[in-house]
Measured scan of single mutants.
Amino acid sequence: MRKLSDELLIESYFKATEMNLNRDFIELIENEIKRRSLGHIISV
């Protein structure tokens, strides 16, 4: 996760939620978004 750019991480989050991927996977992405202080972009 740390090698993904912020932009790609956010894009991955939206794609994963759109495709209804595994909730655990989405939570991993959400946690990384929060760690990077980007939660305001997706309202996490």
Rank of each mutant, 00 (worst) to 15 (best):
L4M: 14
S37V: 06
L38P: 02
F25Y: 14
D24F: 10
I41H: 09
L9V: 03
L38S: 02
V44R: 13
N22L: 08
R23N: 12
L21S: 12
D6N: 10
R23V: 12
R23L: 14
E30N: 05
D6E: 04
K15F: 14
E32D: 01
H40W: 08
S37W: 07
L8T: 11
L9P: 00
F14N: 07
N20E: 12
I41M: 15
V44P: 10
I42K: 04
F25P: 01
N31R: 12
S5D: 06
N20S: 07
T17N: 11
E18C: 09
F14I: 13
E7H: 11
V44A: 15
K3I: 06
K15P: 01
M19F: 04
L4P: 01
R36Y: 01
I41E: 08
I10Y: 03
S43Y: 04
K34E: 08
E18R: 07
D24W: 14
T17G: 08
F25G: 03
L9D: 00
A16L: 04
I33E: 00
R2K: 11
E30G: 06
E27Y: 08
L21K: 08
I10H: 02
R2Y: 06
G39F: 10
E27N: 10
N22T: 10
M19K: 09
S37G: 15
H40P: 07
M1A: 05
A16T: 04
M1D: 02
K34L: 12
F14L: 12
S5N: 06
E27K: 13
L8W: 09
N31W: 06
E30I: 15
L38G: 02
N31Y: 08
D24A: 13
Y13E: 00
I10K: 03
E30D: 03
R2Q: 15
G39M: 09
R35C: 03
E7Y: 12
L21F: 12
E7Q: 12
L28M: 14
T17S: 09
K3D: 15
F25S: 05
L38Y: 02
S5V: 04
N20Q: 11
L28D: 06
R36G: 00
N20T: 05
S43F: 05
R2C: 07
L4R: 02
G39Q: 11
I42T: 05
I26A: 03
N31E: 13
L28P: 04
K34N: 12
I10C: 04
F25W: 14
L21P: 05
E27D: 11
L4C: 07
M1G: 02
S43D: 13
K3P: 03
L28G: 04
A16D: 02
L21T: 10
M19L: 12
S12V: 15
E32A: 02
D6H: 04
R23F: 11
N22A: 14
E27C: 06
I33L: 15
R2G: 11
A16S: 07
D24I: 11
E11P: 01
F14K: 11
M1P: 04
I26Q: 03
S37E: 12
E30A: 13
F14C: 06
K3G: 13
I42L: 08
R35M: 05
Y13C: 02
I29E: 00
I26Y: 03
I41D: 04
L38T: 02
V44S: 15
D6G: 02
K3M: 06
I29A: 02
M19S: 12
D24Q: 12
M19A: 14
L4T: 03
D6P: 03
L21Y: 13
F25N: 04
F25Q: 07
R2L: 12
E7W: 12
L38I: 06
E11I: 09
I10R: 02
E18K: 07
N20A: 09
K15D: 08
M19C: 09
F25M: 12
F14Q: 08
G39K: 06
L8C: 11
A16I: 05
R2M: 14
S5L: 04
E11R: 08
M1F: 05
R36H: 01
N20Y: 07
K34P: 00
R35L: 07
S12N: 08
E7N: 08
L9S: 01
D24N: 10
E18H: 10
L21W: 12
K34G: 05
S5P: 09
M19H: 11
L38N: 02
D24C: 07
R36A: 00
L9G: 01
L38V: 03
K3L: 06
I29H: 03
I26W: 04
E18G: 08
R23S: 14
I26G: 01
A16V: 05
H40G: 09
E7R: 10
E32S: 01
S12A: 15
R36T: 01
S5C: 05
M1T: 05
K15H: 15
E27R: 11
S43A: 13
R35F: 06
I33D: 00
N20M: 09
L38C: 03
I42R: 03
S12L: 15
A16H: 06
F14P: 00
E11D: 09
R23E: 10
R35S: 07
M1C: 12
Y13R: 01
E11S: 06
Y13L: 04
S12R: 05
L4W: 15
D6C: 04
D6K: 03
L21V: 11
E30S: 10
N22I: 07
M1W: 04
M1Q: 03
R2P: 04
S12Q: 14
L4F: 08
S37P: 02
I26C: 01
S5K: 03
S43N: 14
K34Q: 10
L28Q: 10
L9Q: 01
D24P: 08
L8D: 15
E18W: 05
L9H: 00
A16P: 01
N22M: 09
K3Q: 14
R35V: 05
L21N: 09
E7F: 11
H40V: 06
I26H: 02
Y13N: 00
H40M: 06
T17I: 15
R36V: 01
D6Q: 03
R2N: 09
R2S: 15
N31D: 10
F25H: 06
D6Y: 07
L9M: 02
N31I: 12
I33Q: 00
S12G: 08
E32C: 01
I10P: 00
F14H: 10
L4V: 06
L38A: 02
L28V: 11
R36I: 01
L21A: 14
S43I: 14
L4E: 02
G39H: 11
R35T: 04
F14M: 10
Y13M: 02
G39P: 05
I42E: 03
F25R: 04
R23A: 14
I29V: 05
E11M: 10
H40D: 08
R23G: 11
I41Q: 08
Y13A: 01
T17D: 08
E7D: 10
H40C: 07
R2T: 14
F14D: 04
K3W: 07
E11F: 08
E27Q: 13
E7S: 11
R2W: 05
S5H: 03
V44K: 14
K34Y: 10
E27L: 12
D24K: 10
S43G: 14
E30C: 08
F14E: 06
K34F: 10
R36M: 00
F14A: 06
E18Q: 10
R35N: 07
T17V: 15
R35P: 00
N20G: 15
R35H: 06
N31F: 10
I41R: 09
E27M: 13
E32N: 01
A16F: 08
G39A: 09
N22K: 07
E32H: 02
K3A: 10
E30Q: 08
L9Y: 01
D6L: 06
T17M: 15
Y13Q: 01
T17F: 13
F25C: 09
R36N: 00
G39V: 08
I26L: 09
L28C: 05
K3V: 09
Y13V: 01
L8A: 14
E18S: 10
I29R: 00
A16W: 07
R36Q: 00
F14W: 12
K15A: 13
G39E: 13
L9C: 01
S5M: 03
L8G: 09
E11A: 11
Y13I: 02
N31G: 08
I41N: 06
F25K: 04
E32G: 01
A16N: 04
S43E: 14
K15E: 10
I26V: 09
S43P: 11
L38F: 03
S37H: 14
E32I: 02
I10A: 03
K15Q: 12
S43H: 13
N20R: 06
I33V: 06
N22S: 14
D24G: 10
M1V: 15
E32K: 00
T17P: 04
H40F: 09
G39L: 09
V44F: 11
L28R: 05
I26R: 04
H40I: 06
I42Q: 03
R2F: 06
R35W: 03
L28A: 14
R35G: 04
I42W: 01
I29Y: 07
N31M: 13
I26M: 07
R2I: 09
S43M: 11
N20V: 06
L8S: 12
H40N: 10
S12F: 15
V44Y: 06
A16Q: 04
I29T: 01
H40S: 07
D24L: 11
H40R: 06
G39I: 09
E30Y: 13
A16K: 03
R23I: 13
I33N: 00
G39W: 14
R35A: 09
S5I: 05
H40A: 09
N22D: 15
I26F: 04
L8R: 09
Y13T: 00
I42N: 03
